[in-house]
Computed example of a mutant assay.
Amino acid sequence: MTRPRFHLAFPVDDLSAARRFYGEFLGCREGRSSEAWIDFDFHEHQIVAHLAPEECSAASLGQVDGKQVPVRHFGLLLDWPDWEALADRLKAAGQPFVIEPYVRFAGEPGEQGTFFVRDPAGNALEFKTFRDEAQVFAR
């Protein structure tokens, strides 16, 4: 499946912390930057961390599968081995999870792995994978 390219801008309260988290920790290549923002290559998608501490706040939570999911979040669909490798890397680094890696709909159409983390500014990120990418929009 060819993933679409998107552009997403989001607030952070510390550009150095964002640079460490997205650049060093998640391995996103840094693009252009200024004293007020940083572009990152987020698996071929452009994300922009804008210095806006007044806009940083924890997202409200909603109930999904008995778990408290951050309602406002963004993330990626990864291939299953890449998703597992990222989850393992985050665990080994001691990154706290909002929701630990788990598999939803095991053995059913739409079987997927998912987990949530927060960046240093509190932005929630979901990393997801599908056993069969053709099932991404299965009903």
Rank of each mutant, 00 (worst) to 15 (best):
1 M>W: 09
1 M>A: 14
2 T>Q: 12
3 R>P: 03
5 R>Y: 11
5 R>H: 13
10 F>L: 12
11 P>L: 05
14 D>L: 12
15 L>N: 07
16 S>E: 15
18 A>N: 06
19 R>S: 12
20 R>Q: 14
21 F>V: 09
22 Y>R: 11
22 Y>G: 09
23 G>H: 10
25 F>V: 15
26 L>H: 07
27 G>H: 07
27 G>E: 04
28 C>M: 12
28 C>D: 05
28 C>W: 09
29 R>M: 08
30 E>M: 10
31 G>E: 03
33 S>R: 15
35 E>I: 11
36 A>W: 13
38 I>S: 08
38 I>N: 09
40 F>D: 07
41 D>V: 15
42 F>N: 04
43 H>D: 02
43 H>K: 02
44 E>V: 01
46 Q>L: 15
47 I>V: 15
47 I>Q: 02
47 I>K: 02
48 V>A: 15
49 A>D: 07
50 H>P: 07
50 H>W: 14
51 L>G: 10
51 L>T: 12
53 P>W: 03
54 E>Y: 04
59 A>C: 02
59 A>Y: 04
60 S>D: 13
65 D>M: 15
66 G>P: 06
67 K>Y: 11
67 K>I: 04
68 Q>H: 11
70 P>I: 06
71 V>C: 04
72 R>C: 06
72 R>G: 08
73 H>K: 02
75 G>H: 02
76 L>I: 05
79 D>V: 14
79 D>M: 12
79 D>S: 15
80 W>C: 06
80 W>S: 10
80 W>F: 08
81 P>E: 03
81 P>G: 04
84 E>D: 04
84 E>L: 07
84 E>Q: 12
85 A>C: 02
85 A>Q: 10
85 A>H: 06
86 L>P: 08
86 L>Y: 05
87 A>C: 01
87 A>D: 01
89 R>L: 01
91 K>T: 14
91 K>W: 07
92 A>P: 07
93 A>W: 03
93 A>Q: 06
93 A>E: 07
93 A>G: 12
94 G>E: 07
94 G>T: 14
94 G>W: 09
94 G>D: 08
94 G>H: 10
95 Q>M: 10
97 F>N: 00
97 F>K: 00
98 V>P: 00
98 V>H: 02
98 V>G: 01
100 E>S: 08
102 Y>A: 07
102 Y>M: 08
103 V>G: 07
103 V>K: 13
103 V>Y: 10
104 R>G: 08
104 R>S: 11
104 R>Q: 14
105 F>G: 06
106 A>S: 13
106 A>V: 14
107 G>V: 15
108 E>F: 06
109 P>Y: 07
110 G>L: 06
110 G>V: 11
110 G>I: 09
112 Q>P: 10
113 G>P: 03
113 G>A: 05
114 T>S: 14
115 F>H: 03
115 F>M: 03
118 R>V: 00
119 D>G: 04
119 D>R: 03
122 G>D: 00
123 N>D: 00
123 N>I: 00
123 N>G: 01
124 A>N: 02
125 L>W: 02
126 E>C: 07
129 T>K: 01
130 F>K: 03
131 R>S: 13
131 R>Y: 14
132 D>P: 01
132 D>G: 05
132 D>E: 12
132 D>Y: 13
133 E>N: 06
134 A>C: 02
135 Q>H: 15
137 F>D: 04
139 R>Y: 04
139 R>A: 09
